[in-house]
């Protein structure tokens, strides 16, 4: 259903703009990183794309979506995973059943994805007693099980230790390799470099640049991006 076009996308609360006239075209294929400092509007932009928030002006257009339920073709993983009070397996099954799958089909699919994220042994354990890293892997499994065309990830490793973050990054790459479009926010430059193919750099609710990853780090086009790179990597 890609490309995804943002047309003068704007979102404000009580007249204060949080996202300010962002236009961009996100193509299928490359892993897209939405980068920017805290408070830049990354998470809000992602929620607008995913349909959790309604824009106050402008549009989100899925160009490739003809005769498909746009919402069913995308999934999202949040910064803080929300686990239902049931087993890890049942958490994945829950999403699949909402998507209209039968119980049996859901369980088979759920076991498959739990294995990919390395949680097959924890399948019967209550999701809420899993560690933070395991919960985030479970959240990835739950989202991926739906077989989305596009997977949104909102700072999925922000609350995790480096080892858990590494696991998450590997799983994200596996999901990407399976053909799912990755769109992810982060404020971590190292992660952007490891996982990204292209960067949308956001500052103060505006899109400052939309460039391939290499060019972004070598020759940032905007003053804001240059300052962000310098500030985040002071040894450069």
């Amino acid at each position: 259903m890609l490309p995804l076009e943002l047309d003068q996308l704007t979102f404000g609360v009580n007249g204060t703009p949080i996202i300010n006239g962002i236009s961009a075209k996100i193509e299928a294929g490359p892993r897209t990183i939405i980068l920017g400092p805290n408070g830049a509007g990354k998470s809000v932009l992602m929620r607008l794309c995913h349909g959790l928030l309604e824009p106050t002006a402008g549009r989100v257009i899925w160009h490739g979506a003809r005769n498909v339920d746009v919402h069913r073709r995308q999934a999202m993983v949040f910064q803080r995973p929300v686990m239902l009070r049931r087993s890890a397996l049942a958490n994945v099954v829950y999403g699949l059943k909402l998507a209209g799958k039968s119980s049996r089909e859901s369980e088979l699919r759920a076991m498959d994805v739990l294995e990919v994220v390395g949680l097959e042994k924890q399948a019967q354990r209550p999701a809420r007693v899993l560690s933070g890293g395991e919960q985030q892997r479970l959240a990835l499994a739950r989202a991926w099980a739906l077989g989305p065309d596009v997977l949104f990830l909102d700072e999925p490793t922000a609350n995790l230790d480096p080892a858990s973050a590494h696991d998450i990054e590997n799983i994200v790459n596996t999901i990407h390799a399976s053909g799912t479009k990755i769109i992810m926010t982060t404020h971590n430059l190292g992660q952007a470099r490891r996982l990204g193919d292209e960067i949308l750099f956001i500052s103060n609710g505006r899109l400052m640049e939309h460039t391939p990853i290499d060019r972004f780090f070598k020759e940032p086009a905007s003053v804001e991006a240059a300052a962000f790179i310098k500030g985040e990597l002071p040894w450069h």
Binding site: L52, F78, V82, L84, R85, R86, Y94, G95, L98, R142
Partner: peptide, 22 residues
Amino acid sequence: YSEQLRSLGARRFRAGMTLIWD
């Protein structure tokens, strides 16, 4: 839960039942 449940496509009634169970 609301964002997560809406993201998974749960409508109000289903979301309500899920919340009661949880």
